[in-house]
Write a protein that binds this DNA or RNA. Structure first.
Lengths: 237, 237
DNA sequence: ACGGCGGCTGAAAGTTTTCTGAGAGGCCGC
DNA sequence: GCGGCCTCTCAGAAAACTTTCAGCCGCCGT
């Protein structure tokens, strides 16, 4: 789906390490769909040997694993001389001592429960930072709409627009999927945390907020397809 | 990340000597990420031969090592004719006689536990002093904000401002990463000592102090990105 | 033209995040 | 040992954001 919009990073090899089968399935399916080359492991030791064999470009790693914990996994991987960047998945309570220092080597972390947009945004950001050479742009552009993933700045027709976190995530998702029709269910699945149990109306609300903030000038870019979903596109000729 | 902001020193070769695996990992990851070319050793003898082979521009050296102590290492290195500058890592009790006089030869030391900003600032300072030719500026400037790393003087709009040590470190970190969004976790990881176990609120407190002291005039430079972090930047156009 | 469904949006309630004043405790210099 | 600065914590207030709800509107099919 997002494959076309992530030209270089799309083919990046990810190793996803997570012992919860549901979450692993969720992650590998959607990351594959996003164009990544995904392999998986469900334990720390499996992860270490998988990393040795497949030399992933980035590891998505649950810190809580049945055997080794995530920090051990990284230690072992790096002892072998690998410098693979990591996005850690951690429990909500940031009081875990070891979480300190996670952002140091260009790595990052995402707390559970997360939204898929959040996770893929972090993955993109870390790959951007750690991939030398070909500079991935952090700026999404569609028509006269611009969104900078690093600085969180959004412009419409050159004007700076302030967005709340959810508005920002929703707009990024629409832009990454420009010209593709997205159902409310899809949007909910990607932009909201995976444990969200509210209904579709919240998507309508946020589309409404976004329209007010970034789609209040001609030409209109956010379109409703009644009974189907929403799409970001330039008006028909 | 900080790579772009350390143009010349960035490529400097460092040899990091430290026997504690956790701290070594912490150091090598973040110094590499800061753009240094890092090699490591975990014992004094290994350090001596590593220094012979790789001729680093600077050595980061734990004084307390399993075999030789740091001073021995340096003595052996220098017997071989090398005049590599050193930043020592020492235990808290600065009463150790040998530490006296360390700063005489252009070297310096940092006591454990340290913050990464503290260490990288010392490394920058020593490199600045010992690298002839291309003068690294010790003065950071952003808009009408100026910070001198050597004299610890800070000016906003030409006015001298007094900052406490932590305020100074925080501001320097923000300035070194101007226009880059920094999460509270990142700030904590870089500005606070690695054994700090408090929570994010302390970052908010210090941002508040800084705002009062250096950001109480227009235009505001320290901005909050709700749910994301802080950024030092000039207001939107 | 009518009724019904889907969508839009204002408003209110609920929640989270950030800001900041106050104060405890530690360290340092005198 | 005292006073002053500094760091860190706590808690309340303020602000921002999220979610829900309900009424309205307009499209669509009959």
């Amino acid at each position: 789906m997002a494959a076309q919009t992530q030209p270089k990073q799309a083919e990046a090899k990810l190793l996803v390490v997570e012992d919860d089968a549901n979450i692993l399935e969720l992650l590998s399916a959607s990351l594959r769909f996003a164009g990544f080359d995904v392999s998986t492991a469900t334990s720390g030791s499996a992860a270490v040997s998988a990393a040795k064999n497949s030399t992933p470009d980035l590891v998505v790693l649950d810190v809580m694993l049945p055997d080794l914990d995530g920090f051990e996994v990284i230690r072992l991987m790096r002892e072998g001389g690998q410098r693979t960047p990591v996005v850690f998945l951690t429990a909500r309570d940031g009081t875990d001592d070891k979480i300190r220092g996670l952002t140091l080597g260009g790595d990052d972390y995402v707390t559970k429960p997360f939204s898929l947009e959040e996770l893929t945004a972090r993955i993109r950001a870390v790959l951007r930072r750690t991939t030398q050479g070909d500079e991935e742009p952090s700026r999404l552009v569609f028509a006269d709409l611009e969104l900078d993933e690093e600085t969180h700045e959004v412009y419409r027709a050159g004007q700076r627009v302030q967005l709340s976190p959810t508005e920002f995530k929703l707009l990024r998702y629409l832009m990454l999927n420009a010209n593709r029709v997205l159902s409310k269910a899809q949007i909910l699945d990607h932009v909201w945390k995976y444990d969200f149990r509210g209904d579709d109306n919240i998507v309508e609300s946020y589309i409404s907020y976004l329209r007010r903030k970034v789609d209040n000038v001609q030409p209109r870019l956010i379109h409703t397809l009644r009974g189907v979903g929403y799409v970001l596109r330039k008006p028909a000729v």
